[in-house]
């Protein structure tokens, strides 16, 4: 099946491009790291609002690793626009390459990249004293959740890129979406400290679902006494359901738009 080998070769292409443009990784890691190191200090008093003895750094880490998936995923669309504009996509299309593999190779590389960045952030968080209470499996599940979220969200930027064929537009819309979605979710604040209307928004915000799952893996659930190795499976499964739903919609749209560009 040329689908797998083509996807693999194109995945390698994107990985090489990423490694050779470390500035791209720097930019998408810069914000989460600033959040993790400085932002959490600035809002350290928020912790006591959440519960007695709760560290805000521990609380916010879940939101910060997800934010990293978010910002990297939005670079995906611009890269595809670059391939369209430079003619590289056309060049590929004149070969027998499997059409879907062109997209899949890119999505795979996005997922892999987000996972690696998550590991970097989690390592830094460990230095700051934050680590999943659920142990190794917790780490694995955090990385997977962030990775799959990145995959689902990269579908949005890919679809935008294919539709508008303008990197600037993708960037503009991404910037426009990132902050409202992030702040009106459970990523950085406890919903109880939000005005009621925002609580409602937050409870439907897809980001909240993923953040809640990651947080349930990192932070001990409130009011429990022995809190290690307790998995809140219903929260985790809910998150995967929402991610799958978003993924199907955004990647479906991407595939549809890609077919249109290709034919």
């Amino acid at each position: 099946m040329s689908f797998f080998s083509d996807s693999y070769h194109l995945f390698i292409r994107w990985m090489k491009k990423l490694v050779r443009n470390p500035i791209l990784v720097f930019f998408s890691l810069f914000q989460p790291i600033i959040f993790l190191v400085l932002f959490t200090q600035l809002f350290s008093k928020f912790g006591s609002l959440i519960g007695p003895g709760v560290s805000y750094t521990v609380f916010a880490t879940a939101g910060i690793v997800l934010q990293n998936a978010f910002s990297s995923a939005f670079q995906s669309g611009t890269s595809v626009v670059d391939d369209i504009k430079s003619g590289f996509l056309t060049k590929m299309l004149a070969t027998p390459v499997n059409r879907s593999a062109i997209l899949f190779g890119r999505i795979l590389s996005d997922m892999f990249r987000v996972a690696v960045q998550t590991i970097i952030i989690l390592a830094l968080a460990y230095v700051l004293g934050v680590y999943p209470q659920t142990g190794v499996l917790g780490y694995v599940l955090v990385i997977l959740t962030v990775g799959f979220s990145g995959l689902a969200w990269s579908g949005i930027s890919l679809a935008l890129g294919l539709k508008t064929k303008s990197g600037e537009t993708v960037f503009g819309i991404a910037g426009f979406l990132t902050f409202p979605l992030l702040f009106m979710s459970t990523a950085l604040v406890n919903p109880t400290s939000m005005p009621p209307w925002m609580q409602t928004v937050s409870s439907y915000n897809p980001i909240s679902f993923a953040v809640n799952a990651i947080r349930s893996l990192i932070m001990p659930p409130p009011h429990c006494i022995i809190c290690t190795n307790v998995f809140d499976w219903s929260t985790i499964l809910q998150a995967y359901g929402v991610i799958a739903l978003i993924g199907v919609v955004t990647l479906g749209a991407t595939l549809y738009l890609f077919r249109k560009v290709v034919s």
Partner: peptide, 13 residues
Amino acid sequence: GVQNQDTVVDEDL
């Protein structure tokens, strides 16, 4: 084999 009007190579590779 197809060569486009614009030179198309991946400059990072």
